[in-house]
Nucleic acid binder design. Structure first.
Lengths: 151, 151
DNA sequence: CGTAAGACAACTAATTTACTAGGGATTACG
DNA sequence: CGTAATCCCTAGTAAATTAGTTGTCTTACG
């Protein structure tokens, strides 16, 4: 049940963009350097986010990426769904619950449903703005070393 | 964030054992057939559970596996931890939060912590007995087709 | 025009997951 | 006793996913 690097890198990039929200585009090199990862890989992630209309890209010199959605209106659920395709822990509790042969009622399903519900609650209720805010406050308190964390 | 087949098969086998709790051991062929999977693979999973003292094995003819713990005292958390090694979604919110370089405070960590907390709540509070019970009631109502579900 | 950016596709490498094969050890039952 | 039914264990392999790289093309600013 691990979160992929895709989700982790992508989410952090979105938080970086939220912090820069309103101040013009942030370039890929800058975003990649912020996390210490390759530009090529992060670019793929940003493209997924662009397809989902969460970020927009400005081409040419002084270009970069920026959020198209106000951070306080952008849920983590939306971001992760674009990055991972789905946030379902098993197919039969995802969007199309009939992927798992119709009327699926296996012995573990009650558990899967409960788990998924709780996960979705958190993902839907947490906004990118909240995360960016928490982060900046921590930074202000000086407990912070940006490049230490690679969860 | 998908649950592995390891977890799904293993969990279902434990539920099968819970249903048979007190009636003697259930053999590997029977358990594997119940889910329509290979004996070889399920055996590996059961061995993990045995190492964690959740199941016990009786060798020889008429042998098989049985739970060593009363189903109502067996949490899903315990079962999944044995099957997957850990139920942490990212290393820095797992048992040893210092795996992720000490004092990790990356921008997404507040989210990870919240998510993990909710997940653990469900996993700790749900017992195998509950799941087995739900399942049997469903079965009694006849909505049930055991071999349909492959989440 | 030249340079700094993103767009896109295709390919590779690494890791994890899922599964298989096969020989060994133990025990109940006839 | 012997044999069939069981679990025990290791090693190997196949498949899928994840992670990352490379390279060429397009756009826009100055």
């Amino acid at each position: 049940m691990k979160l992929s690097t895709r989700s982790r890198y992508g989410l952090k990039a979105v938080i970086d963009l939220a912090i820069a929200y309103g101040t013009g585009p942030v370039s890929l090199p800058v975003l990649a350097a912020s996390q210490g990862i390759s530009e090529g890989y992060l670019e793929q992630l940003l493209r997924s986010l662009k397809k989902g209309n969460v970020v927009d890209a400005v081409r040419g010199a002084q270009g970069g990426y920026e959020l198209t959605v106000e951070p306080s209106k952008l849920t983590v659920q939306r971001v992760l769904t674009l990055l991972e395709g789905s946030t379902a822990i098993v197919a039969c509790v995802g969007k199309n619950i009939y992927e798992c042969d119709s009327a699926c009622t296996c012995s573990a399903r009650p558990l899967f449903l409960k788990l998924q519900t709780r996960i979705n609650e958190v993902l839907e209720r947490t906004t990118i703005h909240e995360l960016a805010d928490d982060y900046q406050q921590q930074k202000a308190r000086g407990i912070f070393d940006k490049n230490v964390c690679r969860p």
